[in-house]
């Protein structure tokens, strides 16, 4: 509550001083444990701001809304550490100018919410490096462990079972801050690489392509996971890919706004363990 009050004041100050044109935060949702995005332009709107441990959504995707940043004015945004990594990647991929983003950082343990020191992306580089060295445990770990113990066939069966529920609603894509393409590969039908109907093949095609497109870019914010209406544990796939990229290339996505995309860059000291 103290953090929330403090941040309400901060938001009002930021708006009043004109240093930001808008702040993106959270407001109450349809149920007590859900939150909605809030776009604060006035001091009154700031009073609706909610900040507690249920504020899970990574809001960074809203920053790449067409036209939002084109006036070169600054925008404030509430971000967890994963969200900060997301905007670093978006900056590295030239989707936004990091100078325009004022970060209102927070994190939570249990029900406690605490603010993070700093306003600019650069202020958090120490924190992000720490996270790289000491990854935070997630609640899904046991399932991931179970999957990793499976043999290839069992794993295939597991995902086939999970993907069989996929209805190709693309909510995962819409929720993901990394899916900013103007035209997604699934919207291209000349040729139609990815089958639109929800059968096994098409579902595999979509989910595997998505996993590849997020390799070295996913920050495990969990937006896709929470957005999925049929509860496919999508985050696990991306988590696995993140581990691969970290092991193979020492690449921790979103460490800085100038980090080169792992799959498009070449380093002479890449370990290349995957080359036999």
């Amino acid at each position: 509550m103290i953090t929330q009050e403090k941040y309400r004041t901060t938001v009002k100050e930021l708006l009043a001083s004109g240093s930001v044109k808008m702040v993106i935060g959270y407001k109450p949702g349809s149920t007590p444990d859900r939150r909605r995005p809030l776009f604060i332009r006035t001091s009154e709107e700031a009073d609706q701001l909610v900040l507690d441990s249920t504020c899970m959504t990574n809001l960074s995707g809203y920053l790449v809304t067409e036209g939002l940043l084109s006036d070169e004015k600054r925008v404030g945004i509430f971000l967890r550490p994963e969200g900060i990594r997301s905007i670093n990647i978006l900056a590295a991929e030239y989707q936004l100018n990091i100078e325009q983003i004022v970060i209102l950082g927070f994190d939570s343990t249990g029900r406690d919410v605490r603010p993070l020191e700093g306003r600019n992306a650069g202020d958090f580089s120490g924190l992000l490096s720490e996270i790289k060295e000491k990854p935070v445990q997630t609640s899904k770990e046991p399932l991931l462990e179970r999957i990793e113990k499976m043999n290839a066939q069992e794993r295939f069966d597991f995902w086939q079972e999970e993907f069989s529920r996929c209805i190709k609603c693309y909510a995962c894509r819409q929720a993901c801050p990394m899916c900013y393409c103007r035209r997604c590969i699934v919207d291209s039908n000349q040729p139609q690489w990815i089958n639109t109907s929800s059968h096994t093949l098409g579902n595999f095609e979509w989910n595997i392509v998505r996993a590849f497109h997020l390799s070295g870019r996913c920050v495990q914010c969990g937006n896709c996971d929470r957005a999925c209406p049929v509860n496919i544990p999508l985050r696990l796939i991306n988590q696995r890919m993140a581990t691969e990229v970290l092991d193979g290339f020492d690449h921790f996505a979103g460490l800085s706004p100038t980090q080169e995309p792992v799959l498009a860059s070449f380093k002479k000291d890449d370990t290349e363990t995957f080359i036999l």
């Binding site: 991929e93 030239y94 393409c181 103007r182 799959l263 498009a264």
Partner: peptide, 13 residues
């Protein structure tokens, strides 16, 4: 050019 997202991954690659 209509669909290019300007991520410049190709420029690096």
């Amino acid at each position: 050019e209509a669909t290019c997202a300007g991520c410049w991954g190709c420029v690096l690659a």
